[in-house]
Design a protein around this nucleic acid. Structure first.
Lengths: 201, 201
DNA sequence: ATCTATATGTAAACAATGTTCACATCCAAT
DNA sequence: ATTGGATGTGAACATTGTTTACATATAGAT
């Protein structure tokens, strides 16, 4: 971080800028992310960012896209692991979703904020579609699926309750009043309730 | 709006500023809310706002507080109406929550955004506690309640799924891809699933 | 190797925003 | 009527996003 300071060209600027967003957002929240701040964090002039992103909004869109993909990766890996270990993969996927939000609140917040991103961006839509795909396919294949192209009430119930808990644990009155451990325990028991409902048919 | 323009003192500035936030947020989104914009909307100098709110953040906190109270009012009224009409009040309260979000996305977004408000503000906490209270009391009294001071898995399941749907309908890939009507129908059927789960004991 | 087109970076400037400060105006209690 | 506190104004400032004109590096053709 000290010897290659003299280079006029950075080399991986767009990648580094996204990393900067991640660092700053993780430490101070997304609201604290500033274009100039990211540029300084990377050691580059503010204007340089505009060679790689049309906008601040475009930068945040790319960040949200990456966050979506990370979450989708996590879910996929979790399901695979649980399946091959013969564990309850519905439970595992649900908990993975919630844990991701708890461990990366900044990422989780970023990926859903319609107003601060270009939600019609091609890459963003693709990433979103990938995540939604998992869920439409029966909550990543862990519950029975009637139609892989649409949400059944069961699928929607599963996703929305997990998504709702994740949101409530990150933003809301519960967020600051409950310990991490409590949240996880509550999530576990809610998922148990859910499982019986969603597998009942 | 035209004859009382000459007064030096506004009279109800803090109230009017909140109204301005509402107007602008409803029309252009919360991200578009600007202190100067609100001041101009009210016909007052930017600095005047600081006599009534310490911060932009304090203004948004007051706005979020009001939104929380509005939602709580709506839920209370809905429950009362459904109860006296002998309707399914669980269903009614759940749908009211979701409808509120669909009809007032700006309000709904504002009330949960920890990063843009003072979430430790006294009034905000009171409003949040009031809403949470409804839910801790058995989802506004519509499901059985084991402990009014804590969330049972049933209560958490009910709230989180409703909250999750509201969020997904307002921010997220579904938001733009589904019609209002579809969202409501999906919500209805999810709530039907939920009811059997939450009342089963 | 040289030249040149293009990609990538810089510095300086601008408008908009949040915020503060010194001052103006009004209201209300003496 | 006077005066003190509440409320509003205008000018200023730092910060931010963004643009523009210019500088430098890199890659491919010659």
């Amino acid at each position: 971080m000290s010897n290659k300071k003299q280079r006029y060209h950075h080399g991986h600027l767009s990648e580094s800028l996204l990393q900067a967003v991640n660092d700053i957002a993780s430490q101070f929240g997304i609201e604290a992310v500033t274009l100039r701040g990211c540029a300084k964090h990377v050691g580059v002039s503010p204007a340089a960012a505009f060679r790689h992103f049309q906008d601040k909004r475009a930068l945040l869109t790319a960040f949200a896209t990456r966050a979506l993909n990370q979450l989708a990766d996590t879910l996929a890996a979790t399901e695979e692991a649980a399946r091959s270990a013969n564990h309850d993969s519905f439970h595992a996927v649900g908990m993975a979703y919630i844990s991701f939000a708890l461990e990366n609140p900044a990422l989780f917040r970023a990926m859903w904020r319609e107003e601060t991103i270009y939600s019609r961006d091609e890459d963003y839509l693709a990433a979103a579609e990938r995540l939604v795909g998992y869920l439409k396919e029966g909550f990543a294949g862990t519950i029975e699926d009637e139609d892989p192209n649409d949400f059944s009430p069961h699928e929607m119930l599963a996703w929305s309750s997990v998504h709702g808990m994740a949101n409530l644990f990150v933003d809301g009155p519960i967020a600051s009043q409950m310990q991490q451990e409590q949240k996880i325990q509550l999530a576990e028991s809610v998922l148990s309730e859910l499982k019986s409902t969603c597998n009942s048919q």
